Structure formats: C-alpha cells, structure tokens
Computed example of a mutant assay.
Amino acid sequence: MRMVFRWFGEGNDSVSLTKIKQIPGVEGIVWALHDIPAGEIWPLDRIQEVKKQTDLYGFHLDVVESVNIHESIKLGSADRDVYIMNYLETIKHLASVGVKVICYNFMPVFDWVRTDLFRSLPDQSTALFYEKEKVTAMDPLELVRKIAANPDYTMPGWEPERLKR
C-alpha cells in the first residue's frame, strides 16, 4: 500500500505541494484536470505539466480522479463513439506519465456532491463532508446556484459551462 494525498492543483487548492510533502508517508498525489469538460481529451502537455510540478517533490501520479464519462456514453446516444475514442486517448496520455488507476463517477448530471467543503474537525483541520439528509432535502437548482456562486474553486463535474445547462 502506498499513501497518497488528494491535491486539487496549482492555483486551485489552498494546500500546496510543499505542505503535502511535510505529511509523513505521503508518496503520491491524487489529482485531476478540473477545467477539462467531460468528453474532451485531456491534453498531454497539461498532464505533463502536473507531472513536472509533482516530480519536484518526489511524488508519483499513480492515481488520477474525475476523468468524467460524457453523458452521451451514459445514455448510449448516437454520438457516444466520439466520446469513447476521446476517453481512450485520455487513458493513453495518462498512462504515459505512469497513471495506473483512473477514478471516475458514473452519476448522471452531477459528478459528486458534498454538503460542506470545509467542515471543521476537532483537531482544527477541515475536510469534505456529506450529510444525506441535507442532500435529500435540497433543491437541485439551489445546489447549482451555490456552486456557481463560488468561482474561486473549480470542481470536476461542476464546470461553469456545465452548470449553465
């Protein structure tokens, strides 16, 4: 087993790679390119840019998250083959930098949901938090409005152009 830490990327995460490097035992970064819409090919140069950033700290990139499945694939639409080919090309690009695990969410419409992005814990740290009761009671359009109102962070599956639809 190898310990990794989730990093949202340079300029998109309040926790820097310098700080992550201080966590004993962390060998790798779980990462993503949050600004790439579902169905688009992840450009090799962007992937290599993340590798260069993490190489400076000796981290591996074995795990990538949020290579999202386009809705056309999920729905079996006529244009799905284009998006399947794009996904395969992205897999090849990721493999070229050593990625071994690709995580994705196959949920319709939303990639993922949390009720709190900065839940304070007893030790003064923060964490993502999910409360089923809050999500069940929530109006989906209100959820979209809340996410859209926070332009400081982009999150996979919650890209501004996707939220408009």
Rank of each mutant, 00 (worst) to 15 (best):
V15H: 00
V15N: 00
L17I: 01
L17Q: 04
L17E: 09
T18P: 07
T18N: 12
T18H: 11
T18L: 10
K19M: 10
K19T: 12
I20H: 06
I20R: 01
K21Y: 01
K21T: 03
K21Q: 05
Q22D: 08
I23N: 00
G25H: 04
G25L: 02
E27K: 04
G28V: 00
I29R: 00
I29L: 05
V30Y: 11
V30E: 06
V30F: 11
W31M: 00
A32M: 15
D35K: 11
D35I: 06
A38T: 08
A38Y: 09
A38E: 10
G39R: 02
E40R: 11
W42E: 01
P43Q: 06
P43A: 04
L44M: 04
L44C: 01
L44K: 06
D45I: 07
R46M: 13
I47Y: 09
Q48V: 04
K52H: 14
K52Q: 14
T54E: 07
D55W: 01
D55C: 03
L56S: 13
Y57T: 10
G58V: 06
G58M: 02
H60I: 09
H60C: 12
L61W: 04
D62S: 06
V63T: 03
V63E: 02
V63P: 00
V64N: 03
V64M: 04
V64Y: 04
E65Y: 03
N68R: 11
I69A: 02
H70R: 07
E71G: 08
E71C: 05
S72Q: 08
S72C: 08
I73G: 09
L75K: 15
L75C: 14
L75I: 14
G76R: 07
S77I: 14
S77E: 15
A78V: 15
A78D: 15
D79C: 14
D79Y: 12
D79K: 11
R80H: 12
D81R: 10
D81A: 12
Y83A: 06
Y83S: 07
I84N: 03
M85T: 15
L88H: 15
L88G: 15
T90L: 05
I91G: 10
K92G: 09
K92L: 12
H93E: 06
H93M: 01
L94E: 00
L94C: 03
G98T: 09
G98C: 12
V99W: 00
V99D: 00
V99C: 00
K100G: 08
V101F: 07
V101K: 02
V101L: 02
I102Y: 02
I102T: 05
C103T: 12
Y104V: 13
Y104H: 13
M107G: 13
P108E: 05
F110L: 05
F110Y: 08
D111R: 11
V113K: 03
T115G: 02
T115L: 04
D116V: 02
D116A: 07
D116C: 07
R119F: 09
R119H: 13
R119Y: 11
S120H: 10
S120Y: 07
P122H: 08
P122D: 03
D123W: 05
D123H: 03
D123I: 10
A127M: 13
A127E: 13
L128I: 11
L128S: 14
L128W: 13
Y130V: 08
E131P: 00
E133Y: 05
E133N: 07
V135T: 11
T136M: 15
A137V: 05
A137Y: 06
A137L: 07
A137H: 08
A137N: 10
D139I: 04
D139R: 02
L141K: 12
L141I: 13
L141T: 14
E142Y: 08
E142P: 04
